[in-house]
């Protein structure tokens, strides 16, 4: 049955390409959402650097300490947009049309994942640019940049799949966006804004054992030359682990949600 599998694979690629194009148009046209996903993290960056930064002792220039964390926050805000878009497809009628057509069942989700990941990476680049303007001074060479972008992309991809799950689980568009803001809060209980040693013991255990902390440590290490330790491997393990669980879960939820809705 090689022909069948080939046809199925090619139909996934072609159908996904069309639906990625659709999601990309959505991103460009929902200017308010796009603006929020960029302005919120930038606002937060400025808030932390100029308002709180002076009072937080990190042993370095605070903008250098906080910039990698802000990048992760940006990915969190992006998650809300993805969850909302996935949920809108289910709660409005378009999914019925796509499902009554002979297209690859995963193409609709793939379209969202690819377009959202791309949007998050563009927003990340813009946030980095603003950080550079306000004094972020990375010391990374070309390879370190490549590695940092790689780790961040992996994180963005993992977050995007989790957002898809939230979009699939939520009963309404509002709930979907509410769920996803939890992701945006994750960096606050991590080493992204303050060193974890300053937290109460119980919180510190949480902060040090959630994915954002090792990813921030890795990004800092790569961009600013601080020690990385085993953070890089822990980060990759987290992201790959999330992907390995989230992608099949999303596929399963999608089938279930669209079967007997």
């Amino acid at each position: 049955m090689t022909t069948t599998t080939t046809t199925r694979r090619s139909s996934l690629v072609t159908d996904s390409r069309v639906l990625i194009g659709r999601s990309a148009r959505h991103i460009v046209r929902s200017t308010d959402a796009l603006l929020i996903s960029f302005v919120l993290p930038v606002f937060q960056l400025l808030l932390f650097v100029y308002v709180f930064g002076g009072a937080i002792a990190t042993g370095t220039d605070y903008v250098n300490y906080v910039a990698p964390g802000i990048i992760l926050v940006a990915a969190g805000f992006g998650a809300a947009i993805t969850a909302t878009a996935v949920n809108a497809d289910l709660t409005e009628g378009l999914m019925d049309r796509l499902r009554s057509m002979p297209i690859h069942p995963s193409a609709a989700v793939t379209g969202h994942v690819v377009a959202s990941t791309a949007r998050n990476l563009v927003v990340t680049a813009l946030v980095v640019a603003v950080a550079l303007v306000v004094g972020f001074r990375p010391t990374a060479g070309a390879w370190e940049w490549v590695a940092a972008i790689g780790v961040l992309s992996l994180f963005v991809l993992a977050i995007t799949w989790i957002s898809v799950i939230m979009g699939l689980v939520a009963k309404s568009v509002e709930a979907a966006s509410g769920f996803a803001f939890f992701i945006a809060l994750l960096p606050f209980v991590s080493g992204a804004f303050v060193p974890t040693e300053t937290m109460p013991d119980a919180l510190r255990v949480v902060a040090e054992n959630q994915p954002v902390t090792p990813i921030v440590e890795t990004a800092r290490g790569l961009l600013l030359g601080t020690p990385i330790g085993n953070s890089a491997w822990v980060s990759i393990a987290w992201c790959v682990g999330i992907l390995a669980v989230a992608a099949p879960t999303a596929a399963m939820l999608f089938r279930r949600r669209t079967r007997d809705a």
Binding site: T14, D15, V18, L19, G21, R22, R25, H26, R29, S30, E92, G93, L94, M95, D96, R97, L98, S100, M101, I103
Partner: peptide, 28 residues
């Protein structure tokens, strides 16, 4: 088959033309 459901199942953010072209491409 073709289906026109009670809820309109077209994409609100795309134009009418883009909706139809997208579906045409999905139909190969």
């Amino acid at each position: 088959i073709g289906l026109t459901g009670q809820e309109t199942s077209v994409d609100g953010l795309l134009t009418g033309r883009e909706n139809l072209t997208m579906l045409g491409r999905l139909w190969r």
